[in-house]
Write a protein that binds this DNA or RNA. Structure first.
Lengths: 241, 241
DNA sequence: TAGTGGTCTAGACCACGGT
DNA sequence: CCGTGGTCTAGACCACTAG
């Protein structure tokens, strides 16, 4: 029986794709900047434009690059365009998306729990930075978020910058060079506890959505573990399949 | 100011793509059958293989076609392979997916409610076929599903076949020639009522996930409206972004 | 007008599945 | 061995942007 452990074959455009990705990950090409043109790159790698284009298109498909006809190709950022909503699935009952406003309640550095250690793949007894905030939609509290990141990778986040921006992923990218590329969300139905009552203004026992998200970078390393609790009278979680 | 209402340009491969899609939708190429080879099709349409390939690849990307190297291209079906799980987001707490088993409680033809009329884009006072079933995961009731389809498009579904198959979308495709291609799910947190108590064996008031799904065909016409209620102690809803 | 990415072509060779 | 889809190439022309 042939074990077939050998990959027997590896498309050129995939190798090119990985080489390009490496240059993004390494920071050689930073988010928001233009990368060399197709013809320049095809010369660099000694492949035809067509092959190189296939690699670029694949990376654009995965939201790593953004292509602009007539202008060039840029490394994707988290502030630009509609990529803001890539990780935000809450919509109004009418299907409209609106931008949440944040109010920070807690911002501290502390030891990681075992749950957080597992979710973030930390070493033993590492610290995390914990942020709790309320996010308002249409001027009413809609979301209670508790999120943690590794204190090692995000040193100083607990005190600076003093007003946290509304979109944290943009900050992770700009200030710490860590870009969230994928996320995995698990959704549960839970009953509101006293904390939820105080923060969201709902009765204790009210059914809430609990969304547990692990956000990962391009290589699949976990960057952030976030638990959101959300009341669903005027909003819901939307997923298109 | 230029209104830019004119599309000014329309890629050839997109026109080809639509032409191919039309042949799938019309039933000329039925699910599970092989379509002509790339070279045959490129001759038919008078375009190069490269252009035709781009159209095929786009359709494969959208799960309309499945390409097998060395064999040919087939129209996708709902029984084949892992496409079973394309619309099933519930996983165990360990992340493992398992196949649910169904027990039908209600199966009837009746007038549509206004909510159903809107969701399915029906005309005035049309009938629907309503099915209620319990789906078990790991031998315990996990899901209570209520689904409706247009009685006009699915005539006879309320009585035949007498034992309903576990995977309804396959039946829709085989028996009624309607293929579910996309779906849109809205998720809410709700409290269990007496019906849930009887069917799922949970206490009244227990928080449940309520998943409202509208399943659509290739052209975006709604085919089925489904409301599922789900308890999340041993399972959860998984979404990858 | 120059430079970019987008489209399209024609043809070569490779990997895979079946005969 | 043949036919299929998969990869790769080289080059032409089109559409968009900017100076």
């Amino acid at each position: 029986m042939n074990q077939d452990v050998t990959p027997t074959f590896r498309p050129l455009y995939q190798q090119i794709k990985e080489a390009l990705l490496a240059r993004v990950v390494s920071g050689e090409w930073s988010p928001g900047s233009f990368i060399p043109s197709e013809s320049a790159l095809s010369n660099q790698y000694g492949v035809s434009v067509g092959t190189l284009r296939k690699a670029l298109d694949a990376l654009a498909q995965e939201n790593v690059l953004i292509r602009y006809q007539g202008k060039g190709t840029v490394v994707a950022t988290h502030d630009s365009d509609r990529s803001l909503f890539q990780f935000f699935c809450l919509v109004g009952l009418d299907g409209k998306r609106s931008l949440p406003i944040s109010r920070v309640l807690i911002r501290e550095r502390r030891a990681a729990t075992t749950e957080e250690t597992e979710a973030l793949a930390l070493g033993t007894s590492e610290d995390v930075i914990h942020i709790r905030r309320i996010r308002e939609l249409d001027e009413r509290p809609a979301l209670l978020e508790d999120l943690v990141v590794s204190a090692r990778n995000f040193a100083g986040l607990e005190e600076q910058p003093s007003p946290l921006p509304n979109t944290l992923y943009h900050l992770y990218q700009q200030r710490f060079g860590r870009s969230v590329a994928h996320a995995e969300e698990r959704i549960f139905a839970v009953a509101a506890d006293d904390k939820d009552k105080g923060c969201l203004g709902v009765e204790t026992g009210t059914p809430l959505l609990e969304i547990r998200r692990i956000a990962k970078d391009l290589q699949g390393n976990p960057l952030e573990y976030r638990i959101s609790r959300c009341e669903t009278h005027s909003h819901c979680y939307l997923n298109e399949l």
